[in-house]
Computed example of a mutant assay.
Amino acid sequence: MNFSHPVSTCPVDLARTIAALANSGGGECRIEGEHGPGRELLGAALREIVPPPTIIDATGVHPPQERSVLKTGIVCPPQVTVSEDERGIIVTVAPGESLCTVGGTVVVIEDGAIQTLGIRDVIRRAGSGG
């Protein structure tokens, strides 16, 4: 799945896209525009995602920011690879083994659109019948 965001996009919107990609099998999004502002937007967006993704870019691997949820050792965050081209920043998202949330809400991609899942939906999809 591919999505595109202009640099002026709200960080939470980009965070929802990245989390939805991670929760839905991975994919790619593009931050269109200048690299500097695009990287600032990406950094702000990644800070909104729990668990915070591992970032891989030209400078190496950046582990997730330490948050209490990661101290348990059972949360496996998604991996985000960042690259640049003449049109902007390309963010490739590999799925994690744990659901990502933004503002306490799980988001997924269904029918080409980002959808919000409630706790009952999450439980039902996990096979518990909810």
Rank of each mutant, 00 (worst) to 15 (best):
E97N: 06
R16C: 02
P6K: 06
V80I: 15
P64I: 12
S83K: 09
G129W: 07
I74C: 06
T54H: 10
I74D: 12
S83A: 14
E66A: 12
H62R: 15
R39S: 07
G118I: 07
I74T: 11
P37G: 08
C76G: 08
G130K: 07
I109G: 08
P52C: 07
P63E: 09
G118C: 10
Q65V: 13
V102I: 06
A44R: 14
P64Y: 13
T105N: 08
L99K: 07
P52M: 15
V7Y: 06
E34I: 04
G25P: 02
L46V: 10
L70C: 12
R47V: 06
D85P: 03
D111E: 14
G104T: 08
G26K: 06
G88Y: 05
L117K: 10
V12S: 01
R47Q: 13
D111K: 13
I119L: 13
R39F: 10
V107E: 00
A20Q: 10
V82I: 15
A94E: 15
Q79T: 15
V107A: 04
E84M: 11
G33M: 06
P95C: 11
R67K: 11
L41Y: 01
R47T: 05
H35C: 05
R47F: 05
D13K: 07
C29E: 01
I89M: 08
I109F: 03
L46F: 05
R47L: 12
V50N: 02
G43A: 14
G118S: 14
E86F: 03
T54N: 11
V102P: 00
V106C: 09
R39H: 07
E66F: 09
G96W: 12
V82H: 05
C10Y: 00
P78L: 14
G33K: 04
D85N: 15
G27Q: 05
G96F: 11
P78G: 13
L14T: 04
L41H: 04
P11K: 10
A58N: 09
G96S: 13
I56D: 02
V75Q: 14
V7F: 11
P64C: 10
R16S: 01
R16T: 01
I74K: 09
T59G: 08
A94D: 15
E97Q: 07
S24R: 04
H35M: 05
E97W: 00
V7P: 06
G118F: 02
G25M: 02
T101L: 14
N23H: 09
P37T: 11
R120W: 03
E86I: 08
E28I: 09
Q79C: 11
T54F: 11
R67V: 15
C76P: 01
A44C: 12
S128P: 00
C100V: 02
G104H: 06
E28Y: 01
P53S: 04
V12H: 02
K71H: 07
I90L: 12
R30A: 04
T81G: 04
A113G: 02
V93P: 01
P11W: 08
A15D: 03
C29M: 06
I123A: 14
R125E: 13
T105V: 14
D13A: 11
